[in-house]
Simulated scan of single mutants.
Amino acid sequence: MTKTWFVTGSSSGFGRLLTERLLERGDRVAATLRRPEVLDELREAHGDRLWVRLLDVTDAEQARTVMAEAFTDLGTIDVVVNNAGFAVFAAVEEARDEQIRQVIDTNLVGSISVIRAALPHLRAQGHGHLLQVSTAGGQTTYPNFSYYHASKWGIEGFCETVAQEIEPFGIGLTIVEPGAAPTGFGSALATAPIMPEYDAGPAGDTRRAIADGTFALVNDPEKVVRAMVDLVDGGKRPLRLPLGPDTYRDVRASLVARLAEHDAHRDTALAVAREDLAVSEGAA
């Protein structure tokens, strides 16, 4: 059975690849991007199964307008894929204010705007699946990516809350966490002048690891996209979908370390409870 997908950031990377694969298998795609002409060749090949509109996700009003047009023109949208993203590769003091703002406006506020624009229509039709493309860096961290992490940890917290709120409406939400893959995203990273104070430490180590290939791009973009499509086809709606051995390894290590640190402060945490209330500490 064919499906209709709404995909942001469809000009390159996972968004472009997903759009191509969906069209090849006969689905309909509402593809949004900042340069619609990039998809002219796909439009010629697939006709009215590809619906294309200009969308800058940092413009909330434009997001609402484009989403409404997509539902009006296509009738039903089964899956909304929040894929548009931006990152600055710089240590905390190196990034410029406008770069920081662009990361937050695109990855966090922009993703929120797309979800908010979609929900009234998904509620009205009584079904739908939101896929929020995040990263391993939505639950773990790497030096030189602090602002990217800020946006991804933020959107994951938002989505985890929203998933609970929209479940009664028959709408699912899955946070997709791909690991490092050769999608061209790395070459599009914004950078800033390097400060020697940071280059001598962990930030510089990460920079050099990416430059010399030690920070390996171990995941196949085709397989990542296939896993996303298979998830939807299978009707499953997990809160998170980790994709990649690096995602599995790094997120698991981060969670284990956080739990160990959390448990180390158990006595202090319990000691601040009010004595006039019976408070459960939950599972130990």
Rank of each mutant, 00 (worst) to 15 (best):
A91Q: 03
T58C: 10
M195C: 11
V92S: 04
A190H: 01
F169H: 14
D78F: 10
A118P: 10
T191V: 03
V88C: 06
H127P: 03
D199C: 11
A87Y: 02
S187L: 06
S151V: 04
F86W: 11
G138M: 03
Y148M: 01
E197I: 05
A68E: 13
A163W: 05
V80L: 08
G172F: 03
V79W: 14
A180P: 12
F86E: 05
L108R: 06
T140E: 00
G137P: 01
P196Y: 13
F185E: 09
R123W: 02
Q164I: 08
V176F: 12
D105L: 08
A95I: 04
L119M: 13
A190S: 08
Q139R: 10
C159V: 00
A63P: 07
V103H: 05
F158T: 11
G157D: 05
V114Y: 06
F185M: 14
I171A: 13
F86M: 12
I166N: 13
H129K: 08
V80S: 10
I115Y: 02
Y198D: 14
E160R: 15
S151I: 01
L189A: 06
I77H: 11
E197H: 06
G186V: 02
D59A: 10
V92G: 02
A124D: 10
L74E: 08
D73M: 08
F158R: 10
G138H: 01
R116V: 05
R123A: 08
P196D: 14
S111V: 00
V80P: 12
Y198P: 10
T140Y: 00
V57Y: 08
A60R: 13
A70L: 04
Y142A: 13
V114F: 06
D59W: 07
N83V: 04
V57H: 05
S134Q: 04
P193K: 09
T76N: 10
G75S: 12
G85N: 15
L130F: 08
G137Q: 04
L74G: 14
P120Q: 09
F169R: 15
Q164R: 15
F169T: 10
G154R: 01
W153Y: 09
A188K: 11
V88I: 08
E98W: 09
A87M: 06
T58L: 04
A180H: 11
R101I: 02
G154Y: 01
E94C: 06
A91S: 08
A118Y: 04
G128T: 04
A70K: 10
S187G: 15
G172M: 04
G184M: 02
P178R: 13
V88Q: 03
Y147C: 03
Q99Y: 01
A90M: 02
L130R: 13
L119H: 12
P182V: 07
G186P: 02
D78A: 12
G172Y: 02
T65E: 15
M67E: 10
F145L: 07
V66G: 11
G110K: 04
W153T: 03
R96N: 11
T76F: 09
A180Y: 12
P196W: 03
Q139F: 07
I77E: 12
P168S: 15
V109K: 02
T174V: 12
V80G: 14
A87N: 11
H129W: 03
A91I: 00
E61I: 08
I104H: 05
T135A: 15
Q164N: 14
L122K: 11
A90K: 03
N107I: 00
T72K: 12
E160D: 15
